[in-house]
């Protein structure tokens, strides 16, 4: 148990410190790297409590896909300059009150959730789920997701689909004057379409590019 405790404290320390560094560090790209470190240590914590499926899914989705896109955007947009502006300029700091309001709301929500966990344990306990201890937790998640919570599961899938379609519709625009390549017509080109043999009369030449 000692080793278990040591590793738990190492991972949670890394998680907390890197979460602080995400907000503190000046360079935005460093912030994203700290965010990735945070995700990784949290997935290690998941694995330590025996939720290996959640830990791996956390790695695949958050670290392998979402954070890559974050990094992509942050690198391309040069957000670092803007961030410095926000914090240095006095008249431009309209976002700070908004940020404060949002963080206060999140803080109170967390208090309510943790308070509920502490004082009304039967409200949020998973005892009603009837989990068989002999099966691996991947199977257990599957049994719960596809039986009791199938409607919520499908609904969240639909929400993601709608969000995806919405993103595509928002960014899709028809531009005129863009040459598009049709792969089918490129592949189906024959020699006779592109090559023409011309008998050139001597001392006269031929006009080819018309």
């Amino acid at each position: 148990m000692l080793a278990h405790a040591i590793f738990f404290y190492i991972f949670s320390l890394i998680a907390i410190i890197s979460a602080i560094m995400v907000t503190v560090s000046k360079n935005t790209v460093h912030s994203v790297f700290f965010l990735i470190l945070d995700f990784i240590s949290i997935s290690c914590l998941f694995i330590m409590i025996g939720a290996e499926f959640l830990g791996m899914i956390m790695l695949i989705i958050y670290v392998g896909a979402v954070a890559v896109l974050f990094l992509f955007v942050v690198m391309m947009l040069n957000v670092a300059q803007q961030k410095n502006q926000w914090f240095s300029a006095k008249e431009n700091s309209k976002h700070i009150p908004v940020g404060l309001i949002i963080s206060t709301i999140i803080f109170f929500e967390l208090i309510i959730v943790i308070g509920g966990w502490k004082y009304k344990p039967d409200l949020v306990s998973s005892m009603s789920l009837n989990i068989d201890n002999n099966i691996s937790n991947t199977h257990a998640i599957g049994y719960v997701l596809y039986t009791d919570y199938i409607h919520i599961f499908q609904l969240s899938g639909m929400i993601l689909l709608v969000a995806m379609v919405g993103a595509i519709v928002l960014t899709f625009r028809q531009r005129s004057g863009v040459k598009r390549q049709s792969y089918f017509s490129q592949i189906s080109r024959e020699r006779s379409d592109g090559v023409e043999l011309i008998d050139i009369p001597s001392n006269q030449g031929v006009k080819s590019d018309d």
Binding site: V29, I36, E52, F53, M56, I60, V63, G64, L71, M75
Partner: peptide, 25 residues
């Protein structure tokens, strides 16, 4: 011999992109 071996392989191979992005940036 872990329960989620294939997910582990997939996760680690999806992390592989970071070495390249970090080097390039």
């Amino acid at each position: 011999d872990i329960n989620v071996g294939i997910l582990y392989l997939f996760a680690v191979s999806s992390l592989g992109v970071y070495g390249i992005i970090m080097g390039g940036w």
